[in-house]
Design a protein around this nucleic acid. Structure first.
Length: 297
DNA sequence: CAAAGCATGCCTTTAGTAAT
DNA sequence: ATTACTAAAGGCATGCTTTG
């Protein structure tokens, strides 16, 4: 099925006249007739009943009409969108954010970007670290905000935004909430919610094993929002980056001597064309004041 | 019978593909 | 890179049927 066939079909459906439809479409009547015949061959039956002055859609034609209208409208929309991108009146930007990064950090940044960039068309998506990196390399994102890791692809060019520690996230009615800082030994026996797909998770397990601290690793959450809901629901405690905004009823408490922190980066892929929108975002992100972590101890 | 409406035969042009 | 072939779109001329 070709788009010109759909276009001709819609013109005939509208005018109920092959000759006038051909004029509308700026082709000769025989060309239009042949295109309709081809479409009918492909769809398995006549779309129009040819009755001279009373030509009209067949049942098949009526059934096809809304689908083909939609098809044509979608194609037209794609065309005008493409034109917008080409002329620079549209500035598409796709940002991938690691699941443990609170999008709250981006609000003012995105607000300024939207004000300064005409035609900004933003896609903001979240994914676990490994998926984010993979999707970034596949071209799904123009820019990624992710954690520093040993195995980041060489083709990623990154800039550090800020560094932050992990702290214990618990309910405000949990005994931990009363402490200024938690002794690691106190974590033993606590029911724990793991951050699945997050780089901090294996590192935390490792640190616990080294210090002979034994939380009960039982639950898993795939996003920061889910993690906080699960803690709110009383399922257990978890680790969260210290700058994550927490829900009412939750609090963050540091752990003594817990060497668990992360570096948050903004990254692009080397060699890929940097769009105006990407460039503006990168510049704004790097110029922005990010949370500063005081040195512990 | 003339005009309107659609179909068909035959042609050219163009784009894509396979072979050299 | 060049050539040959093929398929498809489209145009012109014209035929057939219906309508007024």
């Amino acid at each position: 099925m070709e788009m010109h066939q759909v276009r001709y079909f819609l013109a005939v459906a509208r005018t109920r006249n092959f000759t006038r439809a051909a004029e509308e479409c700026n082709v000769s009547q025989p060309s239009l007739t042949r295109a309709i015949q081809k479409l009918e061959g492909e769809l398995g039956g006549p779309l129009f009943r040819r009755e001279h002055s009373l030509s009209h859609l067949t049942d098949l034609g009526r059934i096809m009409l809304p689908h083909l209208e939609q098809t044509y409208a979608a194609a037209q929309a794609a065309k005008s969108l493409a034109e917008g991108v080409r002329k620079g009146s549209l500035a598409p930007l796709s940002i991938g954010v690691t699941a443990s990064f609170a999008a709250d950090h981006l609000v003012d940044l995105l607000e300024r970007l939207n004000l300064s960039l005409d035609g900004l068309e933003l896609t903001l998506a979240t994914a676990a670290h490994a998926h984010l990196v993979r999707d970034m390399m596949h071209g799904d994102f123009d820019v990624a905000i992710l954690e520093e890791a040993a195995d980041l692809p060489e083709r990623l060019r990154s800039w550090q935004l800020f560094r932050e520690r992990y702290q214990v996230l618990c309910r405000t009615d949990h005994p931990f909430a009363q402490l200024n800082a938690i002794e690691p030994a106190l974590l033993s026996g606590e029911i724990w919610i793991d951050r699945s797909g997050c780089l901090s998770s294996p590192r935390f397990h490792q640190l616990c094993a080294l210090a002979d601290v034994k939380p009960v690793f039982r639950h898993r959450a795939g996003s920061e929002a889910h993690l906080q809901r699960m803690v709110l629901a009383g399922l257990g405690c978890a680790l969260s980056p210290e700058n994550v905004p927490v829900e009412d009823g939750l609090t963050l408490r540091p752990v003594h001597d817990l060497d668990l922190s992360r570096t948050v980066l903004v990254a692009t892929v080397i060699g890929r064309r940097v769009s105006a929108a990407s460039d503006a975002f990168l510049k704004a992100a790097r110029a922005r004041a990010w949370p500063v972590t005081e040195q512990q101890g």
